[in-house]
Simulated assay, not measured.
Amino acid sequence: MKIVVIGGTGLIGSKLVSSLAEQGHEALAAAPSTGVNSITREGLAEAMSGAAVVVDVSNAPSWEDQAVLQFFQVSTGNLLAAEKAAGVKHHVVLSIVGSERLPENGYFRAKVAQEELIKQSGVPYTVVRATQFFEFVQGIAEAGAVGQEVHLSPALFQPVASDDVVAALTDVVLAQPANGTLEVAGPQAIPLDEMARRLLQVRGDSRKVVADVHARYFGAELDDKSLTPGAGARLGLVHFEDWLAGN
């Protein structure tokens, strides 16, 4: 089966391409660097030809509010149009747990808009919402840095290993369209400040992590439900401590 992975050269995309190829499928890593551009439509029709499934794990090059919204709207619109023309039977998109709960975050607003375009398109679809990846915890900590301190919310946080996200996406791609939303999260919810504290300690970073209920997460204050999944979410197998030991 031919499967086009939009964003196929990134963290999740490259792993997904390898996972699908290992199972005997023709997985195409589609990205500007491989001649497929979902914004300009360069190479898009050729990539879609003969494809059964398209998986969109792309990321916007700019996270400025208007730029990220425009990216996901234009890119998703172009993908869906090309899929309809090519007869693609399943559109899978990777989104974010809690996007609709944090409207102060421009990136989250853009992901919600992307999901709505897909739901209204008429193309059979599955939305896979994942929590933040372990790989992003360092960047989240840096965003809360204030001098020699790191101010972060103590709200519960349930990030997931990228490998567990890839495993979930692989299963979704090879299944029938859900025409709905599935959630993927890590196996354990931990206060965000505590998770960052563990990470910095392991990496020899002496900065003090300060729990601050008013600390903003990319523009939004958090509570225990902001970034955690609902009942029925698929939980990954890799615990944060194990991931830390390997990274």
Rank of each mutant, 00 (worst) to 15 (best):
I96L: 10
A52W: 03
S226T: 11
A85E: 01
V127I: 14
S49W: 14
A81T: 15
V209M: 09
Q158F: 03
G50V: 02
A60T: 04
G230H: 12
Q132E: 00
E42G: 03
R109T: 13
M48G: 00
G180K: 02
S14W: 06
V127E: 06
A233L: 06
A86M: 04
V123S: 07
P177D: 02
G232H: 04
K84N: 00
L11Y: 08
T131A: 01
V36L: 05
G144W: 00
G186D: 02
L16H: 00
G98R: 07
G236W: 02
Q66H: 14
F108P: 00
D163V: 02
A85Y: 12
V150K: 00
G77W: 02
E183S: 03
V92C: 05
D164W: 00
D193L: 13
E26V: 01
I6D: 15
V93E: 01
V210E: 03
A178F: 08
H91L: 06
R101I: 09
V4G: 12
F72T: 10
L222E: 15
V112G: 12
F108I: 09
T131P: 08
G230Y: 05
A211D: 11
Q132T: 09
A21H: 12
G10C: 03
I96N: 12
A220T: 10
G87K: 07
E135N: 10
E22G: 15
A220S: 13
G232N: 13
V150H: 06
E221N: 14
F218K: 10
L20I: 10
V165G: 01
D163K: 04
M1I: 04
S206R: 15
N247L: 01
T170A: 04
A155C: 10
R198T: 08
L79P: 05
G236T: 08
V146W: 07
A47K: 07
N179C: 06
V53G: 01
S226I: 13
V137G: 00
L227I: 13
A29M: 05
G35W: 03
L169A: 13
G232S: 07
G147T: 07
I3H: 15
V112W: 08
G186K: 06
G230S: 09
P159L: 02
S18N: 11
L20T: 09
H151A: 04
A167C: 08
D163I: 03
T170R: 05
D223S: 07
M195E: 10
V146E: 10
D224K: 15
N247F: 04
K119Q: 08
F218I: 08
Q23E: 11
S75L: 03
S62E: 00
D224P: 14
Y217I: 09
A178E: 05
A178P: 11
D65H: 12
R129K: 13
S75E: 00
L200E: 02
A110D: 03
V54G: 12
R197Y: 05
L156M: 14
A52Y: 09
L117C: 14
L44N: 11
R198V: 03
S95H: 11
L102G: 12
V160Y: 01
Y107Q: 06
Q132V: 11
V165A: 08
G77A: 04
Q132W: 07
I140W: 12
V4I: 13
A45K: 11
V17E: 03
A175E: 05
G106N: 02
A175F: 02
L117Y: 12
A167H: 11
D193Q: 11
V166P: 06
